[in-house]
């Protein structure tokens, strides 16, 4: 028995070590290969790795799984995507912990630019928010044209509402609507999940609650949920995403990779990337998840 245990351990350790060596070797090879490939096409800025701070919605829809490999192939710059809420992504930018931001919270973005942290801010794409809820529709909001009216009714009837409560772009949008209504959402009906969009949708599903979600995540998650679309296409529900590069003047002596970050920003608003964004999900969903916006480029 003792020998069995010992040999098992030895085997496990050996396997892990071997795999480790093999894995590293393979990675090194792959890196080399991609290097030599790109060298013939466009000379990369430098063999660099940048950190893209972005929102959970871009990752959870799978959009970045399409965009990032294309960018890496074209430029030879490796991208590490850190998907957090927009609030945290912008704070990573303020601290110089990220090289480029892809976010969606207009007011916070404008504050970031006004603070001098950002160099350029460009429109990338948009989708929109939708209000979803249980088919029983206890607040009677289905089909309403106005999001504000729907929120008012939900609060008045104290129907369950699931809030991201994580400073994300979606949470900021939701909070903005409550604020405009001068309602302070509190009480047992207001469920603060503190998690990402997909997780919050599942909480709403279990608790028979309403929630505000971006259309992309909604379309992806819909097959797993028993929720229905309640309110859509109201003006306050638009959801524009911007790409922001950092301002070298503000981050002197820092390790931020401004040039490589800028290349990503330039690339994502290019015609090629915009086409990928517009085509994304066409095969799987009845409507596009995102619409490219780069023709509306506004630079500051």
């Amino acid at each position: 028995m003792k020998n069995l245990a010992l040999s098992l351990l030895a085997l496990l350790t050996l396997a892990a070590l071997l795999l480790g060596v093999a894995g590293c070797a393979k990675e090194a090879k792959e890196e080399k290969r991609s290097e030599s490939k790109t060298a013939t096409e466009t000379p990369p800025v430098k063999k660099e790795t940048i950190i893209l701070a972005t929102t959970t919605s871009t990752k959870d829809t799978g959009l970045l799984d399409v965009l990032i490999p294309a960018f890496e192939k074209e430029t030879g710059i490796k991208v590490k995507t850190v998907a957090v809420g927009t609030g945290e992504a912008i704070k990573m930018g303020e601290r110089g912990e990220a090289d480029v931001l892809l976010v969606h919270a207009k007011k916070t973005e404008e504050k970031f630019m006004a603070g001098g942290y950002g160099e350029t801010r460009r429109a990338v794409m948009h989708n929109d928010f939708v209000l979803v809820g249980p088919s029983s529709d206890p607040a009677g909001v289905k089909g309403l044209k106005s999001a504000n009216e729907a929120f008012q009714k939900i609060a008045d009837s104290a129907s369950n509402f699931a809030s991201r409560n994580d400073e994300s772009g979606t949470h900021k949008k939701e909070f903005g609507i409550w604020e405009a209504l001068i309602i302070k959402p509190e009480g047992g009906w207001y469920i603060k999940t503190g998690s990402g969009m997909a997780a919050t949708l599942r909480v709403a599903n279990e608790k028979q609650a309403y929630t505000l979600t971006d259309r992309g995540t909604w379309l992806v998650q819909k097959p797993n949920l028993q929720l229905e679309l309640m309110v859509e296409k109201d003006k306050p529900l638009s959801n524009p995403y911007s790409v922001i590069t950092l301002n070298p003047a503000k981050f002197e002596n820092s390790r931020v990779k401004f040039e490589a970050g800028k290349r990503f920003a330039d690339w994502i608003v290019s015609a090629d990337a915009q086409k990928m964004i517009n085509d994304f999900g066409k095969d799987k969903y009845p409507e596009p998840l995102f619409t490219g916006d780069s023709t509306l480029t506004t630079s500051k």
């Binding site: 959870d60 829809t61 799978g62 969009m197 997909a198 997780a199 992806v220 797993n224």
Partner: peptide, 9 residues
């Protein structure tokens, strides 16, 4: 965690 988020059970 990520694949649950993506709905890819």
């Amino acid at each position: 965690v990520e694949y649950v988020g993506k709905g890819n059970f």
